[in-house]
């Protein structure tokens, strides 16, 4: 069962991510129409990043508001695994390019690695810490 802090976090995160979808769609449409260059290109590319800053801020708020320290600990551990996945993906791609690879991973592959690692960590903690029937 989700704690009040977790429910609030999920609700707000859903709003922020919906905002991201809308913002990304608008920016994508504008970029496709005007083919921006220079500062306009930079601004347009920065706009869809803002919801992610919001999501990170929401995570910070959740960690501050979550009263259950064990759950807080698990979330931090999952986020660390996610961060590790992102760093590994980034380093791997960097080394590939240094060693002469000319290909390209799909956009946001590092972010994808973050989610995959965080989710895998969450599932493994859930299995390792499964709660038996109450006595």
């Amino acid at each position: 069962m989700k704690s009040p802090a977790a429910r609030k976090y999920m609700r707000r995160n859903l709003i922020v991510m919906s905002g991201y979808l809308v913002l990304f769609s608008v920016v994508d449409f504008v970029a496709y129409r005007i083919h921006p260059t220079g500062i306009v290109l930079w601004v347009l590319a920065a706009l869809p990043v803002l919801p992610f800053l919001g999501a990170i801020s929401l995570t910070g708020q959740y960690l501050r508001n979550e009263k259950d320290e064990y759950k807080r600990d698990l979330v931090v551990r999952c986020l660390l695994w996610g961060t590790a996945g992102m760093v590994i993906a980034n380093l791997f791609s960097g080394f590939l390019h240094i060693f002469g690879w000319k290909g390209q991973f799909f956009p946001f592959s590092e972010l994808f690695a973050l989610y995959v690692f965080a989710l895998a960590a969450k599932l493994s903690y859930r299995v390792a810490n499964r709660v038996p029937a109450d006595e």
Binding site: S3, K67, D68, E69, Y70, K71, V131, P132, D134
Partner: peptide
Amino acid sequence: EVSRQSVNA
């Protein structure tokens, strides 16, 4: 005022 998972852990 914690979860049962916490007590079990």
